[in-house]
Computed example of a mutant assay.
Amino acid sequence: MRNFRRARHGGTSRIRLRSWAIAALVACTFVTGGGVATASRLADAVPAADVLADPGVSHAVPVSQLAPQIGAVFNGGLNGAHHCTASVVNSPGGDLIVTAAHCLGSTSDVFVPGYHDGNAPYGVWRLRRIVVDAQWSAGSDQDHDVAFAVVEPLNGRTVQSVVGGYALGIDQGTDSPVTITGYPQATQTPITCTNRISAYSGTQLRIYCTGFTGGTSGSPWVVGSGMVIGVIGGYQQGGYTADISYSVAFGASVKSLYERAVSV
């Protein structure tokens, strides 16, 4: 079946692993728990029937309520094609975004936080470096469909200093409701939805929220007001229908990927 969120493949170069000596420095920028340590913990957390029997209904986000940390990803510039969504995550350098690996084809893509109606209220941010897992680079492994990108400063400031950022949640399980916000290609403002999540497999999560069509890959899964525990992607690059979305469960591999991203 057609993947509603399919973006470009290829073009993302494998980044050489560098020293992890600064791991202690960045520890405060993500939150770890015990939620995705094993497949059985995931499978037992929330019955799959719960999420499928209680759909979350999406609605447009009023411009006055846009989260500045979330934005649209465009090819080449604001006049290019919008194809994905990303969000800022806290980092020592204040320059990091997270999205799905299948979203980022090259550093010619740009990130536009708070985008609406053709406007870029916080600027257009160019990518300096893309970091994906080696297993994604080698074979587009759906269990590694997560990417971080370092963005260039704009007017002497980092993106996090301008719009803020989310904490990165590692091993958080499926105990809390999740809000996803993303930019469909057919709209000029994002949509949002809150619902419970469940385990699709030992490495994948899913959520039932209506209307997350093409352009919403990479949309952050936010717990409470400030922690990202997933992004739309993974199975079928986020799902083969617009109403059920998937994410890689953020665990040890995503933590390692984050440490690579902030290691330069």
Rank of each mutant, 00 (worst) to 15 (best):
C84K: 04
V124Y: 05
G139H: 04
I130M: 08
H82V: 10
T107Y: 11
S87P: 03
I130D: 01
P121C: 12
G169H: 03
S106F: 03
R129Y: 03
V131E: 04
T158G: 08
S137K: 13
R129E: 11
G165W: 01
P92M: 10
P153F: 09
Q135Y: 11
S91A: 12
N119I: 14
C103G: 01
D143N: 15
A86W: 01
V112A: 04
L154W: 08
V88F: 03
A81M: 09
L154Y: 14
A167M: 11
V131T: 12
D109T: 11
Q160N: 09
R157W: 09
C103K: 01
A138I: 13
Q135L: 14
V151H: 05
A81V: 12
V163D: 00
P92K: 12
E152C: 11
S140F: 10
H102P: 00
V88W: 01
H102R: 08
Q142E: 09
R128C: 07
P121I: 13
I130H: 03
V88L: 04
V151T: 14
D145A: 02
V132L: 04
T99A: 06
A86I: 02
G105M: 11
L104V: 09
N90Q: 15
H116R: 11
H83Y: 10
L127V: 15
S108H: 13
V88K: 01
D133W: 07
Q172G: 02
H116A: 13
V132A: 05
G139Y: 02
I97S: 01
G156M: 10
F148L: 03
V131K: 05
A100I: 08
N90E: 15
G123M: 03
G165V: 06
V112L: 07
P153G: 08
T85A: 03
V163H: 05
V98I: 15
G118D: 12
H116E: 08
H82F: 09
V88I: 10
W136V: 14
R157C: 09
H144V: 06
D117S: 14
V159N: 02
T107N: 13
D141K: 09
D141R: 10
A81Q: 13
N119A: 15
H144C: 02
H144R: 14
W125L: 04
V163T: 10
A86D: 00
C84W: 01
D143I: 06
G93I: 05
A81T: 13
S161W: 09
A147W: 05
G80S: 04
N155M: 11
V159Q: 03
H144E: 03
